[in-house]
Design a protein around this nucleic acid. Sequence first.
DNA 1: CCCAAAATGAGACTGAGTCGCATTTGCAGG
DNA 2: CCTGCAAATGCGACTCAGTCTCATTTTGGG
Lengths: 164, 164
Amino acid sequence: MRPSRNKQRPDKGLSLQAAERFRSFLHAKELRVTEVREAIVSAVMAQEGHFHVDELVRDLQRRGVLASRATVYRALPLLLEAGLIQPTVLSGKGHRYEAAFGHDHHDHLICGECNKVVEFQFEAFEMLQREVAARYGFELTSHFHELIGVCPECRARRGTHASH
Amino acid sequence: MRPSRNKQRPDKGLSLQAAERFRSFLHAKELRVTEVREAIVSAVMAQEGHFHVDELVRDLQRRGVLASRATVYRALPLLLEAGLIQPTVLSGKGHRYEAAFGHDHHDHLICGECNKVVEFQFEAFEMLQREVAARYGFELTSHFHELIGVCPECRARRGTHASH
DNA sequence: CCCAAAATGAGACTGAGTCGCATTTGCAGG
DNA sequence: CCTGCAAATGCGACTCAGTCTCATTTTGGG
């Protein structure tokens, strides 16, 4: 039987699967399964959407786990390699990530005025990307894709005030 | 997808056009045309491909123009708004830009192992992007798009060493 | 030519991310 | 259940891109 996949609700089973996968990953690389790393995986899986590294650190402290910034920074490349997280651009400052394990892939559409973020999923992009990669003989491993624009609300607001 | 033309040869006329366009831009915004800003435009147009901000600063100094880092950082958003440059991601650290004026738009395909960068141009992406934006009521202004993979050479190198 | 406003340079400052090192912890082998 | 040691951690110092402040210089309209 397979865990139901619901969009919104944080999925306990998923989080456990992620933890399990990370343990296997660590084992395969002969790295150690530590309390702090487990806590980091757990905190990551509990995040909704994309997050800043420092948000993650604060979250961990709120949970009573004191993981230093340095340790979190050291752990993230591992989670990345294990496929649990995915870097996002979101054209601001500071790297951001989002949980990747058990989530469908999506890209972002961002309002350059109010910073609203909309996720979209569009299979055609993936196909074209693979095609481009193939044409140059590349084996595609990941991508960054982010569209910047002006959202409907900001456009409306512009429309009313505008016309200097 | 078509190869970009005139990759190598710096185009004097283009550079002059760019300078002219920037002057108009400054005038329209009631900003001043200064020696340093002109030098920055000129240096930008002379860059090949993408560049780091500090590379630009060093270039300027090499040309005998002393533009401080602060000034260059202050000028870049203007060049951006004037459409002379374009930010690129190139998933490393530090912002990078590339000259946009007179160049066809393109995105990047990057080898995650040797960092080779290949430019590609594929009209279909632009169309789909406009379509996605329209679907969400956004007015599209720009985008970041970067494919990460393993280039043919690195794949070959892999193949000889290890059996996957 | 004059002068207010804009632009600049120098260097202080900020904040993300990294690093070195002393201490703690996981874990394999007894 | 111990023991030893390499891996992991926390702390704080450090780096470096990018920003900001402010005293001085430059621009351009009158």
